[in-house]
Design a protein around this nucleic acid. Structure first.
Length: 307
DNA sequence: TTAAATGTTTAAAT
DNA sequence: CATTTAAACATTTA
């Protein structure tokens, strides 16, 4: 599930909580979801030194050196990394990462009721047990998600080339509306909503934020890419950034921050303008939100203000 | 019972 | 060859 904002939120949470911890054991409950030998990271010999995100993937850098203190958690990992290991997570549609320490819980990913309950549960794929007694649970209802193990320098080389053909990160400074237009125009005849979700066009936008972005930009999701004007590409560029920012601001689709048993409040979908709002009144006009199907996926939009 | 669910890969069709 | 669509993956829930 998680799209960029959800994975970003999880990243920010884990950076605060697991950096510096040593992995005592990796327990695997669903072997297909863990594509390496768990012994390679078990036995207290590796320590978490960094957590990062690329597209919808989450990386956890491991090392066995003593670290000096740094404020910037992002650059932490890149300081010293030669021939060290990196865990790579993809949560796909229904993945969750749940960090538990004493009575505290950090949850992120696909929102379900059981994520608040006892761990592990029936959807638990793997459990990282740290030497301080805390644990990180990787749950995945539909079991599409996975964890892989790479050499850090290998996975980070050439702007994460190993991870596939990935478009620019939406918040990188070299991502401009012109870049967005150029990449989208590789799919001239595709409906704009379908094209936005291609990860080689732009990284991290999935089904929720594609609908939200087009609503922000007031563009009909069925429009062919080559029918957009430059002004509309600019509006779409802004719409993508705005909807992703809003998602991150609200902690992604899940709370994804610390809670003490109580405290479960709303999540991003409560703030969405159109996603999941079929039949409801449009936030911006007097129209009604509709749902259509595009490339096998649901698209939500307001026909009266998205032209 | 059928459809759909926040993703990606691969095969098939155009 | 390039582009686009559909199926597949596995499970739960409406």
């Amino acid at each position: 599930m998680p799209e960029l904002p959800e994975v970003e939120t999880i990243k920010l949470g884990l950076q605060r909580k697991i950096i510096g911890l040593k992995i005592k054991n990796l327990q695997v409950l669903y072997p297909k979801g863990v594509q390496f030998d768990p012994k390679e990271v078990s036995g207290k010999k590796v320590k978490v030194i960094g957590v990062w995100r690329r597209a919808k993937m989450l990386g956890v850098d491991l090392d066995n050196v003593i670290l000096s203190k740094t404020k910037d958690l992002d650059s932490y990992a890149t300081l010293q990394n030669d021939n060290k290991l990196t865990l790579l997570f993809h949560l796909k549609m229904t993945g969750q990462l749940i960090f538990v320490h004493n009575s505290e819980k950090l949850i992120g990913g696909h929102p379900t009721e059981d994520m608040k309950g006892q761990m592990p549960n029936k959807s638990t794929v793997a459990v990282f047990e740290f030497s301080d007694g805390s644990s990180l649970y990787f749950n995945d209802q539909r079991r599409f998600g996975w964890i892989k193990l790479f050499e850090t320098q290998e996975v980070k080389a050439d702007n994460f080339k190993k991870l596939g053909k990935l478009g620019p990160e939406p918040f990188d400074s070299d991502f401009t509306w012109e870049v967005l237009k150029t990449n989208l125009m590789h799919h001239k005849l595709m409906p704009i909503k379908v094209a936005i979700m291609d990860q080689s066009v732009i990284s991290g936008v999935g089904n929720i934020y594609a609908s939200e972005s087009l609503f922000e930009a007031k563009i009909d999701p069925r429009r062919k890419v080559n029918s957009l004007s430059d002004l509309e590409f600019k509006k779409l560029y802004q719409g993508i950034k705005k909807s992703l920012e809003t998602g991150i601001k609200h902690g992604g689709s899940t709370r994804a921050h610390f809670v003490n048993v109580e405290g479960e409040k709303g999540y991003f979908l409560d703030y969405a303008n159109v996603y999941g709002k079929e039949g409801q009144k449009c936030h911006d006009c007097s129209g009604k939100v509709e749902k259509i199907k595009q490339a096998g996926r649901g698209t939500y939009w307001c026909p009266s203000c998205q032209k």
